[in-house]
């Protein structure tokens, strides 16, 4: 058996941070850690993956893998699993990661622990802590099928510096054109200079108290000063001030930045579920009774329209 594999999330050669987080965490254990990368012209990514702990880097290089599609990716990984027999495979808990892992899990008729925030993988046994009810509860589960599959939430682990050998293993291309059943007609990248909400170290969110686009502009101004992602509560999404992809909470995204700044957000239970695991939480709200203050490290009972401009100029000093 060949240790644990980490499926590399990359687009156009840029590896997502969660990949390095998974490799680094696994490297702390004694088992062999391998990175698996699919794409076109991706063999050059091996040194970067080795630096964070990959002992081996399995590469499947083909034009068919230039962008993600479930059919070809699953067919390819199934062939590689048969050839190399890994004990466990970890994916990022992202759009592509959970899509691929779910289809793979059913093809192999095994178990999959999605949105895991902790993992204990030894000798083919995988025990994971999963976030359920959007973080309102935690379930500790064992994957009893084989191989063990899980998707890991971005940001729960640190990127380390213990290197692996990074030996490149070129895998034979097993997927064929017949495996492809999704045709990507177009892709419009989100044009934003801000970091991804799920991976950002700082998130500044606006809620009902922003009262409209002017309040959101203040939130964005603070976010840009801090190099932060912008998020919103359901109120600001439903009012159309921010796109749905920026919603933080039970029917949106769960975030765990180093700092979460809640501006004009009262803190409904479903919103708290999405952000209360953040390391530091600051809140600005005019209502002293707002539930957001019960989870805040630093709460300010004041008008965000007055506080944010002064805060911005103070931070610039």
């Amino acid at each position: 058996m060949a240790g644990t594999w980490v499926f590399v999330e990359q687009k156009d050669g840029n590896i997502r941070k969660v990949t390095f987080e998974m490799l680094s965490e696994l490297k702390k254990g004694g088992d062999e850690v391998s990175a698996v990368v699919f794409g076109k012209g991706v063999a050059g990514l091996a040194p970067e993956l080795a630096k964070c702990g990959a002992d081996k880097v399995y590469v499947a290089d083909d034009a068919m893998f230039a962008s993600y599609n479930t059919g070809a990716f699953v067919a390819q990984i199934v062939a590689m699993i048969k050839e190399f027999s890994p004990n466990a495979l970890l994916f990022a808990h992202s759009f592509n990661g959970r899509d691929m892992a779910s289809r793979l899990a059913q093809k192999l008729e095994t178990g999959l622990a999605t949105d895991a925030v902790a993992a204990d993988i030894t000798a083919g046994k995988g025990i994971f802590t999963r976030s359920i009810y959007a973080g309102k509860a935690l379930a500790k589960v064992e994957v009893t099928g084989s191989p063990v599959l899980a998707t890991i939430r971005p940001g729960v682990w640190e990127v380390g510096s213990t290197a692996g050998a990074g030996a490149v293993v070129n895998a034979a291309v097993a997927a064929t054109a017949g495996d492809v059943y999704q045709v990507e007609k177009s892709f419009a990248a989100t044009v934003s200079a801000r970091p991804d909400l799920a991976e950002a170290a700082v998130v500044v969110s606006g809620g009902r108290g922003c009262k409209g686009p002017d309040g959101i502009k203040l939130v964005e101004q603070l976010a840009d000063l801090l190099g932060a992602a912008v998020g919103g509560s359901r109120a600001s999404i439903d009012s159309g001030w921010l796109g749905h992809e920026l919603q933080v909470g039970q029917t949106g995204k769960v975030v765990l930045p180093n700092l979460y700044v809640a501006c004009g957000i009262s803190g409904a239970i479903q919103h708290l579920a999405g952000m209360s695991s953040s390391k530091f939480i600051a809140a600005v709200n005019t209502d002293t009774e707002a539930p957001i203050f019960s989870v805040s490290d630093f709460g300010v009972v004041a008008d965000l329209f007055k506080v944010i401009p002064i805060l911005v100029s103070e931070l610039k000093k």
Binding site: A105, G111, L112, I132, A139, V141, T144
Partner: peptide
């Protein structure tokens, strides 16, 4: 294929 060991808050 999954066994729940425990649930916590």
């Amino acid at each position: 294929k999954i066994k729940i060991i425990d649930v916590s808050l």
